[in-house]
Write a protein that binds this DNA or RNA. Structure first.
Length: 275
DNA sequence: GCCCAGGGAATCG
DNA sequence: CGATTCCATGGG
């Protein structure tokens, strides 16, 4: 990875890294793509615009300080994904999926936002998940320039299911509220889950009504940096049953979540193979 | 109109 | 235990 600041922009060279793919592969729900291909979003309390030229990924209107402290971590840019891909690619399907989805980085998002987002994701499709989260932020978040912040658990904990009616999130409303109460009260300490063994951290998250294994694993993987967490959604189950006899090869275990994301992207790009 | 969506709780056998 | 059913809503 190499980068430099010029005026209010950061110019980055990093391989493998595809910002558009990373932000549009179903791990984040608050990013949009402009007509010119630029990515706009709001994460970790900051707005960001990214454009992609031939040689550089350009982070607009930010500072070298924010880039170092915030965005390098958010996009997991210091990790050697090339070495990881090499270590997990014995199986031909993993190898092919990793080639197709090579530029994905597993984002390290805010744990509360991740938890809440994947509670909303259950039995839902991605366009609608994005809509519900947008309404959640517009209704209960704070205005930050052009964007809205993600409402913290304290903001939601005292609300009722009827208060969440504008979100049109259906049966998930009471799940969001239970999560907000347990997190804001300290009954569940999300920050303590970073360094906890994955199995213990998963069990903590599953104390929340509406959080099962899959939502817990998405929170562990996309919010808490547990790269061995393996969320099994309908697509991954199809892939595992079609090509892997039910489970990934053991060599994938340490980075199962990364492998999972390559396979998820691969499966969605090749839906016709899974009918 | 119908099928399904990055599931989970409740219920049943 | 595993299997089935219900849950709100709306995108395709």
């Amino acid at each position: 990875m190499e980068w430099f600041a010029k005026e209010n922009d950061i110019f980055l060279k990093c391989e493998p890294f595809d910002a558009a793919l990373s932000l549009n592969c179903g791990q984040a729900f608050r990013w949009t793509t402009n007509d010119d291909g630029a990515l706009c979003g709001f994460a970790l309390g900051r707005s960001l615009k990214i454009s992609i030229s031939d040689d550089y990924t350009v982070f607009h209107n930010t500072t070298a300080d924010d880039f170092k402290k915030i965005w390098i971590k958010y996009f997991d840019l210091e990790r050697d994904y090339s070495a990881i891909i090499g270590s997990v690619s014995s199986h031909p399907v993993v190898k092919r999926a990793a080639e197709k989805a090579r530029g994905i980085r597993i984002l390290r998002q805010d744990p509360w936002e991740t938890l809440c987002s994947f509670i909303i994701s259950q039995n839902n499709n991605i366009p609608r998940i994005k809509g519900i989260i947008a309404r959640l932020c517009e209704t209960f978040g704070d205005k930050c320039g052009e964007d809205y912040s993600f409402p913290p658990p304290e903001r939601l904990a005292g609300l009722s299911a009827e208060d969440l009616a504008p979100l049109r999130c259906g049966f998930r409303a009471r799940y969001i509220l239970d999560a907000a109460r347990k997190v804001s009260s300290g009954e569940i300490n999300l920050n303590a889950l970073y360094d906890m063994p994955t199995d213990e951290a998963r069990a903590e998250l599953m104390k929340i009504v509406g959080v099962g294994e899959k939502v817990a694993d998405c929170t562990l993987l996309f919010g808490l940096g547990h790269l061995n967490a393996l969320p099994k959604d309908v697509w991954i189950k199809r892939v595992l049953n079609t090509y892997f006899d039910g489970a990934l090869p053991a060599e994938c275990n340490e980075y199962a979540g990364i492998v999972q994301q390559y396979l998820f992207e691969y499966a969605r790009q090749n839906k016709e193979d899974f009918n």
